[in-house]
Amino acid sequence: MNEIFALVEHRQGIIRDITYELLSCGRKLAEKGNTKLTAVILGHNTDNFVQILKGQAHRLLVVDNEVYEDFNSEVYQTALTEIIKRQNPVLTLISHSAFGVDLCPALAAQLGMPFTTDCLDVELAEQKLKVTRQIYDGKLNAKVLLRENAGYMITLRSGCFPAGESSLDGVVEKIDTPVSAQPDYRKFIEYIEAAVGEVDITKSDVLVSVGRGVKEKAYLSIIEDFAETIGGVVGCSRPVVDAGWLPKDRQIGSSGKTVKPKLYIALGISGAFQHIIGMKGADTIIAVNKDPNAPIFSEADYGIVDDLFKVVPVLKTKILEMKQAKG
């Protein structure tokens, strides 16, 4: 079997965590398929990346030029089309991130290669590729077979392939850059950092987090009051921010903040993976949701299947009693 490629993802000079997961997945598949894993690095001043990743792959393919310093999918697409055509990997792994979703479909389509996105599991045997994906708001899994081909491309969901130890001694191979300038029709200008808000939710030991289940902005005061009672602050899922009910700096998840409080209470949050990724590091997670099949219950330690507006007032009273008994 031909080699497996994993595309190294970096941003602002730092290798992103998902890269180690891609490499871990790639090593496993390579071992099973009796082939090798190549880490593909497109970047600038890549020596540091090479040092860090040398133990993680059998080979490191390095293309170093200023033009790859910041991510521009058009630039990456042109370069990778060249490289993949020359090297014919059996499978190219890309992260299912803002980077990967911008690149993979166009790159694979240009190469005429079967591809799919957001994979949780991968099986590659006898040149056939099967993946597991999640559909319908994470309520079902689908096992999918890709059209048989010499090469495939997929994006992997983060958190599904634990980064592993590895002590390979990757051969470093530098190749000339197929691209030297950004195209006029798409130029990277700059990164703009997220605005800093009044409250830093990452600093709080207790977070009361609300989702679309809170229904209306007016009801947020009930949640705020409850959070105050238990000495926490209010965080939220994305739709609450999209609706303008809470500022962006309260959003928890892949496109918001990552939090690790001692206690995380999720109220009316379904548990989409983009949310889970931001809060699964909490010590204790309690979820309240009226849907017994809500994916949040697979992540929580304790669950209450009920209407949050029934639970919150009673819980508040109990906690007040408890505090009084103590004091």
């Binding site: 941003r11 803002a98 980077f99 029709y185 798409r186």
Partner: peptide
């Protein structure tokens, strides 16, 4: 474009 962690990428396109 919205990236992870709320970081924004500013692009100039045609």
């Amino acid at each position: 474009r919205e990236l992870e962690g709320g970081l924004i990428e500013h692009l100039d396109m045609t």
